[in-house]
Design a protein around this nucleic acid. Structure first.
Lengths: 66, 66
DNA sequence: CATATATGTAAAGCTTGCTTTACTCTCCGC
DNA sequence: GCGGAGAGTAAAGCAAGCTTTACATATATG
């Protein structure tokens, strides 16, 4: 699943470690999501959306989206 | 995490089996989400939001919400 | 060059999400 | 009373998400 996490993070000039800390997860988890190794859990995705103050659908693409 | 899946489903007069089929998951998965045994994965949550044509945040509560 | 910061990646291990099969209970219609 | 539909739940097993530890690479700055 595609996501815009790297862009959002970069636009705030945060390191992966900064974002991980703000979300309460490990840096490797952020890296894995940005490099699309796997999708975040729903709770983590909601935290991300809230942190960046955007609707979740604007950060993570719906499945089967073109 | 709280969710409004049961209400949404009931308002369409669907059984858990109907919804499961529409989403491509097992009936037990729907039941587990409705009874809040566990949260859906992000891809499944996005499918649900799309099926009911509502923003994901209006179906699933953000973590730590009152 | 040496050190620090940012990122990528890997392995092992635990937890969560989902599956299949199967059994239970309730409610409704006949 | 019986049968079927809808719902709740359980166990076993596989897949995905996340952790910690660790090492590698690149880039920047002293």
């Amino acid at each position: 699943m595609k996501n815009r996490l790297r862009n959002l993070r970069a636009s705030r000039q945060w390191s992966q470690a900064d974002l991980a800390k703000a979300l309460g997860v490990s840096r490797q988890t952020i890296n894995a999501i940005e490099t699309e190794k796997y999708d975040p859990s729903l709770p983590l995705a909601l935290k991300i959306a809230r942190l960046f103050e955007r609707p979740l659908e604007t950060i993570f693409d719906s499945p089967d989206d073109p």
